[in-house]
């Protein structure tokens, strides 16, 4: 049988371009990857489960090459390929597998928006009227909580820092202040002073690992240290798709390095060596609780939940063959 040339689906190419432009945050990237893989499956001309699987794998590889340290798209891949592997093992007819995959994708989108609302609902009681809330960078989940509290008429103040290099914290300050919420914006170097003024710290995460640590935008870890120093509780708002299931088996996340172009003031220096990464790791010991759609839990719960999550050997194998990656050490 002649091998059909495996092409990258235009929808996947679109998501690849979004990753390359750093235009996707973690939660959204999970939704985008899920719908892209679903479109690959439904559009596939494959005549067998095996060739459908091969086609999905080719598209998977294109995504893996560009994906930053986000857990949701990786978990989506594990979910989709675990489904394919089960179908193949059970000798499921192709049409039935395709319909299962389509259903998985539909369910995922509904689950994702429900989870966001449930997290907001669980986080609401944490914010008492008059609170000063420190948040780092930009988080869709944190923003939705703050908006809900504001909508209910509670008074509070938000402290946020720039979050260099892409200044996502400035965007948070802009979005909240435009809605009439009192915002204080500082520089990232000021976290020591600002956390001493805060009542609680709310952040999102790119991924939570099996040891309860969180991979977040760089600067979160020093903020959490400052929070601990000032006895300020640290809440990480994540849906359970942020739990990086591969971390159970030591699968590292790829942390993107800071680019020299991120230091505009340093251009004058020849051959400048720029160091550091876009994300850092906050150990579970500094996290008061994870606020999830299933409830508010100690970070050590992450590993337990991962044990019940789909895990695909196909995806794991591809990740092992990827370029050596770097993960924040212990």
């Amino acid at each position: 049988m002649a091998r059909r040339k495996l092409t990258i689906h235009p929808k996947v190419a679109e998501v690849v371009a979004l990753f390359e432009a750093q235009a996707l945050h973690a939660a959204r990237s999970g939704r985008e990857v899920m719908s892209a893989l679903a479109v690959v499956a439904s559009d596939s001309p494959a005549a067998s489960v095996d060739s459908l699987s091969a086609e999905l794998e080719a598209n998977l590889e294109a995504l893996l090459q560009v994906m930053p340290a986000y857990a949701p798209p990786l978990n989506v891949m594990h979910q989709v390929f675990a489904e394919v592997e089960r179908g193949r093992d059970a000798r499921l007819p192709l049409a039935e597998l395709k319909s299962k995959l389509a259903q998985t994708a539909t369910d995922y989108q509904a689950w994702s928006s429900r989870a966001r609302q449930e997290i907001a609902g669980n986080a609401l009681p944490l914010i008492t009227p008059g609170s000063t809330i420190f948040t780092f960078t930009l988080s869709e989940t944190v923003l939705s909580v703050l908006r809900e509290v504001h909508r209910r008429g509670a008074q509070f103040r938000v402290l946020v820092t720039e979050s260099r290099p892409n200044n996502d914290g400035r965007l948070t300050a802009r979005l909240l202040s435009d809605e009439g919420i009192e915002v204080g914006l500082g520089i990232d170097a000021s976290v020591g002073e600002l956390l001493a003024q805060a009542d609680l710290m709310l952040v999102g995460a790119e991924a939570v690992l099996s040891d309860g640590s969180a991979i977040c935008k760089v600067g979160t870890y020093p903020s959490a240290l400052a929070a601990r120093r000032s006895n300020v509780p640290v809440f990480v708002l994540v849906d359970t798709m942020k739990l990086h299931v591969g971390s159970l088996f030591g699968e590292a996340l790829r942390l993107d390095p800071i680019q020299p172009t991120s230091l505009p003031g340093a251009k004058a220096v020849d051959g400048l060596a720029v160091t550091g990464h876009l994300f850092d790791r906050t150990p579970g010991a500094l996290i008061t609780a994870l606020v999830t759609e299933k409830g508010i839990v100690h970070p050590s719960q992450a590993g337990t939940w991962m044990l019940g999550m789909p895990f695909s050997q196909t995806v794991a194998g591809k990740l092992r063959r990827r370029e050596p990656s770097r993960e924040q050490g212990d």
Binding site: R164, G219, L263, L272, V274, H277, D280
Partner: peptide, 22 residues
Amino acid sequence: VTEMAKYDIPVSVSIDACIGEL
């Protein structure tokens, strides 16, 4: 960075948010 370069001391630079890693 400039001062270290003067004395031929290798130097690398990053953003302030990276202290937790560096």
